[in-house]
Computed example of a mutant assay.
Amino acid sequence: MYIAITRQQLGDNFRGSARDFVNYLEKENEGKEQGDQELYFNHEENSIDAERVIAEIDANTAKLKKKEPKFYSLVVSPSQGELKHIGDDPEKLRQYTREVMKAYAAAFYRDREVTVKDILYFAKLERERTYSEKDRQVKENQAYATKILELQHQVRAIQQGREQGDLAQLQERIQILEREAPHQQNGKRIVPGMAKEGYQSHIHIIVSRMDRTNTHSLSPGSKFRTSETTLHGQTVKQGFDRDKFFRAAENTFDRQFGYKRNFVETYHARNLLDKDPKRFFSALLGLPANERQAARQLLFKAGINVPTIPTNKAQLAYKAMMQLKKGIGKALESGSIGI
C-alpha cells in the first residue's frame, strides 16, 4: 500500500481555488458519456459532481492567508497484489477509502479528539496509470530511447535533403533498438505516457485544510509533526502523526479484506530499510523459509534480481547489503512493492 500526502501547489499562478486540481482529476472522464463518468464520493454520499467539490473546498478557507495551501491531496495506491486480492472491486475501494479517512482524522494530535466527521473531503476512483520518467522501466529504456532519437533526427535530415545516407539502414537500426529495449509491453518499448497493464486502480482524495466548521486548521504536512507548545500559559497539542496514519491504513486493509501481507510489503519494513538497514536484513533473514521465498518473488517482480536471499549474516557482505538496499529503496519509492 502506497499513500502520498501533498499540499496544494503554490506556484506563480496560484489562485487559491481547487479548480485546477479538480480539472486535472477529470482527465479520465474526458470523452465519456455522462453515465460512464467516475464521480466523486465522500463519507456519506456517492455521485458528487466536480463543481460541488470545487465550491465546498473553496468556501472552506476561513483564517487562511492568501498564500497558504487551502487543501491537501492524498493518493491511495494499493499494489497489484492487493487489488487482485479484492478483485479490483470499485465498491470495496470506496469502502476502504472511507476507513482510511477515519484513520486520517485519528492521526491528528489535538487536545480534543478529531474524527472523520470533522474532515471535509472528496474522493475519486481512477482505473488507469501511465508510465512516467520516474518509472524504473522508462529509466532503464532511456539509453535505447536516446539512440533511437538520434537516428530519427538523421532520418529527418536525409528526408529533408540536409544530409545523405541510407534511409533503409537507419530505419532497420531503429527497429532493432526498439526490439532490444529491455522493457516491453505488448511488443512495444515502454515509454512515458504509455498506459500500464494490469490492475491500476487508485484513489485521489482532496481534503480541506480547515475542518467542517471552517474554524480549526487540520494540516497533515510533513512539518506539522506531533508536538506540544505553550499558548496563553496552557500546553496545547498540535501536529499530525504520519507513522500512525500509514500503519493504520495498512492494518485496516489487511483486517478489512483478510490480506496476508509479506514482510517486504509492510510500512515497518520500509522504515527499517530507511533508518536501520542492518535490522531490515536481519528481519529478512529471520523469516520462515516460505515467507523468505515469497519476499524474494516480490522483490523480483519489483525489478530487484535476488537469485537467493542469504540464509545467514555471514553471507550478506556489507557491499552486497548496500546494493540490495539501493534496489529495494528505488522499488519502494516507486510503489512497485505496494507500500
Results as ranks from 00 to 15, higher is better:
Gln9Asn: 12
Ser17Met: 06
Tyr24Asn: 11
Leu25Ser: 04
Lys27Pro: 00
Lys27Phe: 10
Gln37Tyr: 03
Glu38Gly: 09
Tyr40Arg: 01
Phe41Glu: 07
Ile48Val: 13
Arg52Tyr: 08
Ile57Tyr: 05
Ala62Thr: 06
Lys65Phe: 11
Val75Asp: 06
Val75Pro: 04
Pro78Arg: 08
Ser79Gly: 15
Pro90Gly: 09
Pro90Cys: 09
Leu93Ala: 07
Gln95Ile: 14
Tyr96Thr: 06
Lys102Ser: 15
Tyr104Pro: 05
Phe108Glu: 05
Glu113Lys: 15
Thr115Lys: 15
Ile119Trp: 12
Leu120Met: 15
Leu120Gly: 09
Ala123Gln: 07
Arg127Phe: 06
Glu128Lys: 14
Arg129Asn: 08
Tyr131Ser: 07
Asp135Trp: 04
Asp135Gly: 12
Arg136Gly: 10
Gln137Trp: 06
Asn141Pro: 14
Gln142Gly: 01
Lys147Cys: 00
Gln152His: 12
His153Asn: 13
His153Trp: 06
Gln154Cys: 10
Gly161Met: 11
Gln171Val: 04
Arg173Val: 06
Gln175Ile: 00
Ile176Ser: 08
Glu178Ser: 05
Gly193His: 10
Val207His: 04
Met210Trp: 08
Asp211Ala: 09
Thr213Met: 11
Asn214Ser: 08
Thr215Arg: 14
Lys223Phe: 04
Val236Asn: 07
Val236Glu: 07
Lys237His: 13
Arg242Ile: 01
Arg242Trp: 03
Phe246Glu: 00
Phe246Arg: 02
Phe253Pro: 01
Asp254Thr: 04
Gln256Tyr: 03
Phe257His: 01
Tyr259Ala: 00
Lys260Glu: 10
Lys275Val: 01
Leu284Tyr: 07
Ala289Gly: 00
Arg292Ala: 13
Gln293Phe: 13
Gln297Ile: 06
Gly303Tyr: 00
Pro310Met: 02
Lys319Ala: 14
Met321Cys: 12
Gly327Trp: 05
Gly327Asp: 13
Ile328Ser: 10
Ala331Pro: 05
Leu332Gly: 01
